[in-house]
C-alpha cells in the first residue's frame, strides 16, 4: 500500500519544524525559504495550513516537462525531479496549478516534495501530528486530489 501525507491543519501550531526538517533533508541547511512544504498563515497567525505537493494523478508538472526530467517513483508514488536531466526551464512551475513545484535559484533546477524517498521528514518532525504519513486510501487527503480533478482538462485513456 502506498502512503500519502495527511495534513490536518487544525493541529498545526505554525512552529515550522516541518519546513526546517524539509530544508535540512534536501538542502543540508535549516532554511524554511528552501523548504518544499510551506506553512501558510491566515488571520494573523490564528490559523495555519501546511501545504505541499499531493503527488496528484494528473501530474501536470510531469506532462509539461520538455526533457523528461520528472518521473513517478513506482515505489513511493512520488513525482521526482531528475536533477541531472532538468535544464531549469521552469515550465513545470507555471503548469502546476497547485504551485507546489518551484525554481531553486541556487541549483538552477526545480524542486518539489519527493516524500523523502518514503520517509517524509516533515511528518517525522511535526510535534503535533498535523502532518502524518498514512495509507493512501485514507480519506481527507482526497479533497486536494479532487481539486486536481476539477482543474483537469487532460482526459486520460
Amino acid at each position: 500500500m502506498q502512503k500519502s501525507l495527511l495534513i490536518e491543519p487544525e493541529k498545526c501550531t505554525s512552529c515550522l519544524q516541518c519546513e526546517m526538517a524539509c530544508s535540512f533533508e534536501h538542502e543540508g541547511s535549516f532554511n524554511p525559504a528552501k523548504s518544499r512544504i510551506k506553512v501558510f498563515e491566515f488571520e494573523h497567525g490564528r490559523r495555519a495550513i501546511p501545504y505541499t505537493c499531493t503527488q496528484c494523478a494528473e501530474a501536470w508538472c510531469l506532462h509539461a516537462c520538455p526533457v523528461e526530467a520528472l518521473a513517478r517513483n513506482p515505489t513511493t508514488g512520488a513525482v521526482e525531479v531528475k536533477e541531472d536531466v532538468c535544464v531549469g526551464c521552469k515550465v513545470c512551475t507555471i503548469a502546476c496549478p497547485f504551485g507546489t513545484i518551484n525554481y531553486n535559484r541556487d541549483s538552477g533546477k526545480v524542486a518539489k516534495c519527493d516524500l523523502c524517498g518514503g520517509d517524509p521528514q516533515c511528518a517525522a518532525a511535526c510535534p503535533t501530528g498535523a502532518i502524518t504519513f498514512v495509507d493512501s486510501d485514507w480519506t481527507g487527503y482526497e479533497r486536494m486530489k479532487a481539486w486536481a480533478a476539477k482543474t483537469d482538462n487532460q482526459p486520460r485513456a
Binding site: 507555471i94 496549478p97 504551485g99 518551484n102
Partner: peptide
C-alpha cells in the same frame, strides 16, 4: 516571483 507561481494558473484554470 518564483515560489508558488503555479497557483495563479490554478486560480485562472479553475
Amino acid at each position: 516571483l518564483t515560489q508558488h507561481v503555479g497557483v495563479i494558473r490554478g486560480l485562472v484554470q479553475t
